[in-house]
Every structure is written in structure tokens, then in C-alpha cells.
């Protein structure tokens, strides 16, 4: 499965393995909490896609900016957001990244440059172009990374945002995290032409396609593209091919896929793949299972803390709407 690798850095891969486990454990804990009624709204797990989060977002710098999607827990964790704050947000509690007012689909943590997940597919693409516009206007040395799914390439903002980034030569890395599905639809059936990379190239943006389940490859190419952007190379595009191992949302049983196909895909689980490589190069089994156990423990603690957290105070309802006017006007409660 994992042949010899020229640039294999065992320590680095082990660390990536550990971080993928953190994402997996966070989401498994969140799914369990949803079943308990503690997570209030829909969640979209990225199980099987962790190599994209760790490879791409893990290769950004702290000062880089990130725009993510409804399936963004992994991206957000990798950007440096606190797992506890994220769990609190999923539970709608005080101390959540958004004070409990956003939930899973709207997590943002500006303190680590994470400018927001998004409930509207493709809406983050123009926003990312605009953030990159600001970076250029201010003459800063950092990039904007915009992650979206394969379904998003069929929305208008994909064309408009990529063209914008090219025309203004903006420091933005577009990452299409292609998990083969858009909700219950196989994206392939609804996407014309040879796919996301060709579309980016048609707009003059250099594109690379990678195996999105190989964390080292995603990281290596992301690092290279990031350097190129910082060197003034303008927008770059990364197409990372992975596979969504679970349902569209945590309650979607995904009956539209054949069990055999899913089982086959589990064999390509990016975490297992990293573990295989590490084991083949002599890393001890206990080290690997230790990563899993530490992650599970960390996320269990996050769960306990979120569960014990208070609800937001009532006055949070009216806070942060806008600076002018009274939001209670004409409503039923004064």
C-alpha cells in the first residue's frame, strides 16, 4: 500500500497521524453527542477526509487566513481553534467560538485567522478572494486559503471568485476537497467536463491534482503552492481527491451507496494509511494507538466541559446585530 518514499520524515508523519486522530475523535465524539441530543443542529462529519485538513490547513502559517465550509471541523481544529470552544459551540453553549450563536456550520475563530465555515455552498469563494484582495491592498505577507467541496464548483461564485483572484493577481490558495459526493448526489453525475482543475486552468489559475488521502502529499503540495503565492505567483488551485466515508450529515445513513463500495473505501482511510507507513518504517504500535487514545481522551474532556457549560445569557440574543437601531423594535418582547 505504501511504497518507499523519498521525503519521508517519520516524526513529521507521526505528528500528522496524531492530528488526524484529533479530528476523527472530535467528530466521533460530536456524533455521539448529537445522538444524545447535546449537539443541537446538523453536523457534517469529514470522516475519511482528515488528510486534507491536516495536509492543507496544517501547512498554513498562523497568520494565513482560512475560509471553510459546512464540513469544516477538521479545518478549524487544524487552524488552531480550541476543541473545547468548538464542542461548546456545537452544544450551543457559552464559551463556544461564536458564543453559541453559530453552531457547527458557522464556526469561526478570527483569533487564529479562521474567517468562517459557511452554510451556503460556494459562498466562501468570493469572500476568500476579497480577503486576499485586502491582504494585497495592505501589502501583507500571508495567504488566504479557501476550502470548498466538489459540489461547489458548479455554483456561480466559483467562476466569479476564481476569475477575480486571477484578474487581481491575489494571494489565495483554492482547495477543492473532493469527497465525490454533494449531499446524496454523486457529484460526477452533475459536473460537466474534466473537473475542478481544468476549470481553474481555464481561468488562468495553475492547478494541481493530488491524492487527498495521502497526508504527506497534500502537505507537500500545499507548502509548495503557498511558497509560490508568497513569491508573487498569484492564485493557485489544489484539487485533493478523497472520499466521504460516512453520510452527508451525521443522521444520513447514506443508503444511496452500496455497502461493498463503502467497505472498499475504508481500506483507503487516510489515518490507517499513515499508520501503515509508520509501522512499515518501524514506528511502534503503541505510539500509534497512543495517538488515538490521547485524541479520544482530549475530545472526551472537551465533551464533558461543553456539557457542563452554561447556556448563553439571554442578553446575547440582542447583542452584535448591528451598531444602530433597536433590534427589538415592533417585536413581541420589550
Amino acid at each position: 500500500m505504501s511504497g518507499p518514499r523519498p521525503n519521508l520524515d517519520l516524526e513529521r508523519l507521526a505528528d500528522r497521524h496524531r492530528r488526524m486522530h484529533r479530528i476523527r475523535a472530535f467528530e466521533e465524539q460530536a456524533v455521539a453527542a448529537l445522538e444524545e441530543g447535546l449537539v443541537l443542529g446538523a453536523i457534517h462529519p469529514s470522516i475519511g477526509q482528515e488528510a486534507c485538513a491536516v495536509g492543507a490547513v496544517g501547512s498554513l502559517a498562523r497568520e494565513d487566513l482560512l475560509l471553510s465550509t459546512h464540513r469544516g471541523h477538521g479545518h478549524t481544529l487544524e487552524k488552531g481553534a480550541s476543541a473545547v470552544a468548538m464542542m461548546r459551540e456545537l452544544f450551543g453553549r457559552e464559551g463556544g467560538n461564536c458564543g453559541g450563536k453559530g453552531g457547527s456550520m458557522h464556526i469561526a475563530d478570527f483569533s487564529v485567522g479562521m474567517l468562517g465555515a459557511n452554510g451556503v455552498v460556494g459562498a466562501n469563494i468570493n469572500i476568500a478572494a476579497g480577503a486576499a484582495h485586502a491582504v494585497r491592498l495592505k501589502g501583507e505577507r500571508r495567504i488566504v486559503c479557501c476550502i470548498f467541496g466538489d459540489g461547489a464548483v458548479n455554483r456561480g461564485p466559483f467562476l466569479e471568485g476564481l476569475n477575480w483572484a486571477r484578474v487581481f493577481d491575489l494571494p489565495v490558495l483554492f482547495v477543492c476537497e473532493d469527497n465525490a459526493f454533494a449531499a446524496t448526489t454523486r457529484t460526477e453525475a452533475m459536473t460537466g467536463g474534466p473537473g475542478p482543475a481544468a476549470r481553474a486552468e481555464a481561468l488562468g489559475i495553475p492547478a494541481r491534482a493530488v491524492d487527498g488521502n495521502d497526508v504527506d502529499v497534500v502537505a507537500e503540495v500545499t507548502t509548495e503552492l503557498r511558497e509560490r503565492i508568497l513569491d508573487g505567483g498569484g492564485p493557485q488551485f489544489l484539487w485533493a481527491k478523497t472520499w466521504r466515508l460516512t453520510g452527508h450529515t451525521a443522521v444520513d445513513k447514506a443508503a444511496y451507496r452500496d455497502a461493498g463500495e463503502v467497505e472498499e473505501r475504508w481500506k483507503d482511510d487516510p489515518i490507517a494509511r499513515a499508520a501503515d507507513t509508520l509501522r512499515a518504517h518501524g514506528v511502534a504500535g503503541e505510539t500509534l494507538s497512543g495517538h488515538r487514545e490521547a485524541a479520544v481522551q482530549e475530545m472526551r474532556a472537551a465533551y464533558e466541559e461543553a456539557k457542563a457549560a452554561d447556556w448563553p445569557e439571554d442578553r446575547a440574543l440582542y447583542a452584535d446585530v448591528q451598531d444602530v437601531g433597536d433590534p427589538r423594535e415592533a417585536a413581541f418582547r420589550w
Binding site: 459551540e89 447556556w311 440574543l317 427589538r328 423594535e329 413581541f332 418582547r333
Partner: peptide
């Protein structure tokens, strides 16, 4: 008399959401 929600986006946390229900 008109009854309706206050002029705020709809929050996620259930107790907050409940506050704006008529």
C-alpha cells in the same frame, strides 16, 4: 397589535432561539 420576531438573525443555541419564537 403585530407580533413577530425581533430584528435579529436566528441564533443557534436553543434557549436563544426559543426567545424569539412567538
Amino acid at each position: 397589535k403585530r407580533l413577530g420576531a425581533p430584528r435579529i438573525p436566528i441564533p443557534y443555541a436553543k434557549p436563544l432561539e426559543d426567545m424569539l419564537r412567538v
